[in-house]
């Protein structure tokens, strides 16, 4: 579920096109925008403290049809459609379409995220300092 929340909404929507036509569902909880308080730790490892909040959108739905599985969507930001898509994928993962959804949506999103991080680390890597040791001449 995490990768669904972290992925850009557009990217998630594009991957879901592979799953074909509209998927029928009923809302259990309409998308709701709220916040979670993000915590840190003093010194990085010490006692917890509150930093500030972060916007989050959540929703819950049930697929209509034979496997009436329930899906939850929790995504970063305020995009209701993003939360809806995340909940749909979550629900589909609990049906016999699991393998298909993993291949079409989850794995590609994970790969994109890994590529994004690697690109950032490679750009940072180009700014890594190489120190030259200055050797004083003998004598």
């Amino acid at each position: 579920m995490g990768v669904l929340g972290r992925a850009p909404a557009k990217s998630l929507a594009a991957k879901m096109e592979a799953l074909g036509g509209p998927i029928a569902f009923d809302w259990l909880r309409q998308p709701e925008i709220g916040a979670i308080m993000v915590q840190g730790r003093a010194g990085g490892t010490g006692a917890a403290f509150n930093m500030g909040e972060m916007t989050v959108t959540r929703c819950a739905l049930r697929l209509t049809g034979e496997t009436a599985s329930v899906g939850h969507g929790y995504v970063q930001g305020r995009d209701a459609r993003h939360a809806e898509l995340a909940a749909l994928v979550d629900a589909l993962l609990q049906t016999d379409r699991q393998a298909e959804v993993m291949d079409a949506v989850i794995q590609p999103l994970k790969a994109e995220e890994a590529a994004r991080r690697l690109a950032a680390r490679r750009k940072a890597g180009a700014t890594k300092v190489d120190f030259f040791t200055m050797v004083r001449a003998e004598g």
């Binding site: 925008i33 709220g34 916040a35 993000v38 915590q39 990085g44 509150n50 909040e53 972060m54």
Partner: peptide, 21 residues
Amino acid sequence: RTTLPRFGASAPIDTGAMTIR
């Protein structure tokens, strides 16, 4: 910010696991 319902609190972030820039 005051208009947003609070869903809860996160686990403390782990800055040791940061993807460093």
